[in-house]
């Protein structure tokens, strides 16, 4: 069944397609599939979020030779692109990320375990057992919002956000998990850190992850962390 999609003109150069109003893996999967189709349209930037896609465009490019309404023309093109049913679906990319949990790398692990009524090892096991969906990127370049956290690990954000969260920190914020690509201020609970670099503007693509990717975490020890850190720095 094809869900009803709401179209909303946000600005002269922006049209939002809304698929729903809540955070949900299935809904987000529809968003990613739609984004893949919409990206075939020319002169358009597609920005997927949890349950919506923003289409950013140059109004003059979508006005047409007759000087029509660019929003109407784009809306018609978007509907047509979403109706195409013969497109093959592409299997999502799977990314495995090494994470050193606890200790100096995850200063909030003990607190998260206490809050969830688990011991730290159970937190690590459950966090690393899940397969996560990258729902969207935002907050900072390359910051992924990951769906799929074991509900028993959900924990609210900290009351006192940190001024500086180290780059690579793997964190829990509510029912989601995320990874800080750079040293940033942040309020999520830090349970581990990856030595992998998530964002590098001089690489193509600059972001390790894209919306729609699948992520798994592989627990590593501090020694392997340091080895990999050196390797990635090269």
């Amino acid at each position: 069944m094809r869900p009803a999609i709401q179209f909303e003109a946000l600005a002269e150069d922006a049209l939002l397609l809304r698929f729903g109003e809540h955070i949900d893996s299935d809904l987000n999967a529809q968003v990613q599939a739609a984004t893949a189709r919409l990206r075939r349209l020319p002169e358009l930037e597609c920005v997927p979020a949890y349950a919506s896609v923003l289409l950013h465009f140059e109004p003059s490019a979508w006005r047409g030779s007759a000087g029509g309404d660019p929003h109407q023309r784009l809306q018609a093109a978007a509907r047509a692109a979403l109706m195409e049913s013969h497109l093959t679906t592409v299997a999502p990319r799977e990314v495995s990320m090494p994470v050193c949990y606890g200790g100096e790398y995850g200063p909030d692990l003990v607190e998260v375990a206490a809050y969830c009524g688990l011991d730290p090892h159970q937190v690590i096991t459950r966090h690393a057992a899940a397969e996560y969906h990258v729902a969207m990127l935002g907050f900072a370049p390359g910051f992924p919002y990951l769906l799929g956290l074991d509900p028993t690990l959900a924990m609210p954000r900290r009351h006192d956000p940190r001024q500086r969260v180290p780059a690579g920190s793997v964190a829990i914020g509510g029912s989601q998990t995320g990874i800080y690509p750079e040293a940033l201020p942040g309020g999520w609970q830090l349970i581990g850190r990856t030595p992998q670099r998530l964002f590098n503007a001089s690489l193509e693509p600059p972001s390790l992850l894209a919306a729609g990717d699948r992520v798994r975490f592989r627990p590593i020890g501090p020694e392997e962390f340091r080895q990999l850190e050196e390797e990635y720095a090269r």
């Binding site: 946000l10 600005a11 922006a14 809540h22 979020a49 349950a51 896609v53």
Partner: peptide, 10 residues
């Protein structure tokens, strides 16, 4: 509300 794309002018 859940997060959606944001843009200049909003």
């Amino acid at each position: 509300l859940i997060s959606e794309a944001a843009l200049p002018g909003t």
